[in-house]
C-alpha cells in the first residue's frame, strides 16, 4: 500500500469521524466512546509502528501511556505547568523512559524484548504505589484525583462538555497519524522493513539497527506518553488500575482486528474494538469470553486483520500481498 493510499484512507476515516458529533453530539456516553476511540487509536498505531513495522515485540505501550499520564498530571499539579505544555513534557518523559528501556532491548530478540518491555509494565504499578512514587507525587495507591483540564486560548476543555474535547483529540490524533504515516513512508519505514526481514542484510547495506530501533522507541513512546497526558487531563483522575490486564488485552485486540503492520488498520481496529467492547457491556461476564473467542477466530481466519481482508477482497495488492504470503 503506498503512502497516498494510506493518507487517503486516513482522510476518509477521520473525515467521517469528524462528522459523527452531528449525530451523536447529544449523548455524552457516545462522545466519550468516540474520544476513547481516538485516544486508543493513537496508542494502537504507535504499537503497530513499533511491532508491525519495526518488528520489535514491545509490550510496554500501556506502561508508556500511564507514564505519560502520570508525568503530565504531576507537572501540572506540582509545578503548575499549563496542561497543554505538560502533555508535551510528558511525551518527553515517556520518550526518555522508552530510550532507557530500548537500550537493553537492542541486543535482545523476540520474546526477550517482549519480556523486558512487559517488565516495565509489571513494575510500574508497584513503583507508582511505593514510597518513591509518592515522593514524586503519584499519590500512591490512591492515585490522583484533581488533575486540571486542558486550557487553550482561554478556553477550558472540560470532560462535561465532550464535543470541544472531541475535536481537540481529533486534531491530536490526526497529527499523530500523519507523523506515523510520514515515518512509514520515509526511508525510516524502508529501513524498518529491511531490518525486520533480514537484520544482517540491512546491516550489510549500512542500515544501523541500533539507531533506528532507538528512534522508533523514542518516537512511539513520545506519542503514546503525550496522548496519555491528554487522557489524564480529560478524565481528571488517574490510578494504577489502568495497568490491569484488561486494557492491555483490549489494546492487543485492536491490533489483531486491525492487522499487524497494516497501518492504518490499527486505527480501524481501535474504533472496532472500543465499539464492540461497549456493545458487549450488557452481557457482563460473557464480554471477555466473547472477546477471547473473537481473537481466536480473527487470528485464524484473518491473519492480516480487517484491513488485510479488505485488501484481499478488493485485491489491492501492494505490501499486503507480501505480508500475507506464505513463508516457506
Amino acid at each position: 500500500m503506498d503512502g497516498k493510499r494510506r493518507i487517503l484512507i486516513m482522510a476518509v476515516v477521520f473525515g467521517l469521524v469528524a462528522l459523527l458529533p452531528i449525530f451523536f453530539g447529544g449523548s455524552k456516553v457516545i462522545m466519550h466512546i468516540l474520544i476513547m476511540c481516538l485516544i486508543w487509536s493513537v496508542v494502537a498505531s504507535c504499537w503497530d509502528l513499533i511491532m508491525g513495522f519495526a518488528g520489535i515485540f514491545s509490550f510496554g505501550q500501556v506502561a508508556f501511556f500511564v507514564i505519560g499520564a502520570y508525568a503530565s498530571a504531576i507537572f501540572s499539579l506540582r509545578l503548575g505547568v499549563p496542561p497543554i505544555i505538560s502533555t508535551f513534557l510528558a511525551g518527553a518523559v515517556a520518550a526518555a523512559v522508552g530510550v532507557l528501556v530500548a537500550l537493553p532491548c537492542l541486543r535482545l530478540k523476540g520474546a526477550y524484548v517482549a519480556l523486558v518491555t512487559f517488565a516495565v509494565h509489571m513494575i510500574l504499578a508497584p513503583f507508582l504505589k511505593s514510597n518513591m512514587g509518592r515522593a514524586i507525587g503519584t499519590g500512591g495507591a490512591q492515585g490522583l484525583l484533581t488533575i486540571p483540564p486542558i486550557s487553550l486560548f482561554g478556553y477550558t476543555f472540560q470532560n462535561a462538555e465532550p464535543i470541544p474535547f472531541f475535536y481537540l483529540t481529533l486534531v491530536v490524533a490526526v497529527i499523530c497519524s500523519l507523523i506515523i504515516i510520514l515515518v512509514i513512508m520515509s526511508h525510516w519505514g524502508t529501513a524498518f522493513l529491511t531490518l525486520k526481514d533480514s537484520e544482517d542484510f540491512a546491516r550489510a547495506l549500512g542500515v544501523s539497527a541500533l539507531r533506528y530501533k532507538l528512534m522508533v522507541f523514542a518516537l512511539t513512546s513520545f506519542l503514546t506518553g503525550m496522548i496519555g497526558g491528554f487522557y489524564g487531563h480529560y478524565v481528571g483522575m488517574l490510578s494504577t488500575r489502568m495497568l490491569g490486564i484488561d486494557l492491555f488485552v483490549t489494546l492487543m485486540i485492536m491490533l489483531v482486528i486491525g492487522g499487524v503492520g497494516q497501518y492504518p488498520g490499527a486505527v480501524l481496529g481501535a474504533f472496532f474494538t472500543v465499539t464492540i467492547n461497549e456493545m458487549l457491556a450488557p452481557v457482563g461476564s460473557y464480554r471477555p469470553l466473547i472477546l477471547g473467542a473473537m481473537v481466536l477466530i480473527l487470528v485464524l481466519a484473518l491473519p492480516d486483520g480487517v484491513v488485510g481482508l479488505i485488501r484481499s477482497l478488493f485485491n489491492l495488492g501492494g505490501r499486503g500481498a507480501r505480508a500475507g504470503g506464505r513463508m516457506k
Partner: peptide, 16 residues
Amino acid sequence: FDTQEFAPERVMQGAD
C-alpha cells in the same frame, strides 16, 4: 454496568 477494574475512565463512563 460493568466497572471492570475501576480504571478512571471506566468509572466516569459508568456515570455518564
